[in-house]
Amino acid sequence: MLKSRLAAATAIALALAVGTAHAQDITIGYITKSATNAGWMMINQGARDAAAEEGVNIVEVGPAFADDLTSQLEVFENMVSQGIDAIGIAPADSAGIAPAVNDALAAGIPIIAIDTGVSGAEVTSFVATDNLAVAKVQGAVAATLIEDGDMIIYVTGSQAQSTGQDRRNGFLAGFTAARPNSQVLEVPTEWNSEQAQVGVEALLNQNSDVKMIVHAWDGGTMASVAALTNLGYGPGDVKLVGFDGASDAIAAMDQGWVHANTAQMLYQMGYQGIRAAAAAARGEPVAARIDTGFFLVTPATSGVYKQMVGIQ
């Protein structure tokens, strides 16, 4: 943690030094939720590309471990006190970051929330997929893959977080509307694929008539592929439905494991977020809500999707 704070301070100082050398330059702070999660790496790439395209400096800081609010707050306050031009942030905690965001906004620094919203502050712009709406689509599509009354498993994300809550609530709403008699067993996780794998194995062992496993994120999808392999199932024996459109889950779709995946436009989230931040820093108006949309990947549309996001 100390390391990342130190790195952040040095990086900001360096960027600002460079900034004063070329008075026109704009420096944008970008605070991510994770530097190691496959999905977040795509978002971060989008952010970097946008900064390069806009010709602005970007200071990227990830937390020492995923969802560490205290280190995010510290980095955020450092950036504000050093006079950064705009901040794009993926809050580790929607409510916890709000007071700091309000202070920054009051100081005239535009704040762009990326992926996760801030509750209790009017950010300059909120750039994200509407998780609840996409999860409803995921639920409705998943329902078409099985009969009413079939037992399924849902692997949740963290229920202490709005993203995890929205995805679960959206899925259950979309799914149970179409398949009211199906039993949904749940594997609770904190976005941890190890928990997902162990939980899925336990439930599959006890209930051999599970027909489908639906996931709140693609780390869970890959964990289910491993769990099914461990128990000797083949592709298609139990249908899998993913969320995120991560490249390994798409590869698993090509092998016949995954039957549907609601892909967030992850790259777009980082890209649009930093473009909005750059625009706001220049004093241009930006929309208060930028929906980056989603793409429904099925075996039929996976070719289009792969071309779109650049998977070989």
Binding site: T156, E186, P188, Q195, V198
Partner: peptide, 14 residues
């Protein structure tokens, strides 16, 4: 872990 998952207990209670 295994038992609480099988019992489908609420996450926070787990």
């Amino acid at each position: 872990n295994n038992g609480l998952t099988l019992a489908q207990l609420n996450t926070f209670w787990q």
